[in-house]
């Protein structure tokens, strides 16, 4: 009897393995609206950002390129390279021939745009500083100093073969640092951390779980 039960179990397993037809319901992380499917970028060339008033003490463009190079490398299948260009002027950004010439027919996408980085030391009056009563403590300094940073970038993706822009979007982030010794390099890193999230979401879309059915047969 036991032998027969084992035999029936084997038969059932064999049939289940060979003729299983039940679909499998899966929850798939499906990307939302992506400007560019990440699999379609074979080579991403970081051409740098045009600046109308470049900072004298800090190379913002180089810092941005370095940052984006590290961020994009693990996120796309293709290669990511720095390909700095010498800007003839702001009009180059919308000059198709300029990009076609630099692209030299490569199946690649330029990541470029405009950047404006501002850093200021700002003073603010917190209170009047008037002492209401006599006491052993010195009155608090009514003035406070903050370091203010602002980064505004226009990111443009350009098809290297046609010179046509395939993506264009503006991003702006600001940072108020209590530490007045905060360096521009650290500030750019913080600001880019915030811009990166928005940039990647708008480029590749954010993922959300959706139910789908996989068929076995």
């Amino acid at each position: 009897m036991r032998r027969n039960s084992a035999l029936l179990a084997v038969i059932a397993l064999g049939l289940a393995f060979c003729s299983g037809r039940a679909p499998v319901k899966v929850s798939v992380e499906i990307p939302g609206s992506a400007a560019i499917p990440r699999d379609t970028i074979q080579t991403l060339l970081l051409a740098g950002f045009y600046q109308e008033k470049p900072a004298q003490d800090f190379d913002v463009d180089a810092a941005l390129v370095r940052y984006l190079l590290d961020e994009f490398k693990p996120k796309i299948k293709g290669t990511v390279e720095a390909a700095p260009v010498s800007w003839p002027g702001p009009q180059a950004l919308s000059d198709k021939e300029f990009w076609k010439k630099i692209g030299a027919g490569r199946k690649a996408t330029f990541l470029t745009g405009k950047a404006e980085f501002v850093q200021e030391t700002r003073k603010a009056l917190l209170d009047s500083g008037a002492r209401d009563f006599d006491g052993p403590f010195k009155p608090r300094d009514p003035w406070t100093v903050r370091k203010f940073f602002s980064l505004q970038i226009e990111v443009v993706l350009i098809d290297a073969r046609t010179g046509e822009p395939v993506f264009r979007r503006n991003f702006q982030e600001t940072l108020n640092a209590e530490n007045i010794k905060q360096t521009a390099e650290f500030a750019v890193f913080d600001l880019m951390g915030r811009i990166k999230i928005k940039l990647l979401r708008s480029l590749f879309g954010s993922e959300r779980p959706l139910d789908r059915y996989l068929l076995i047969k």
Partner: peptide, 12 residues
Amino acid sequence: NNLGVAYEKKGL
């Protein structure tokens, strides 16, 4: 059908 699901996953 399954390729369709996979392409959706890839954003294609």
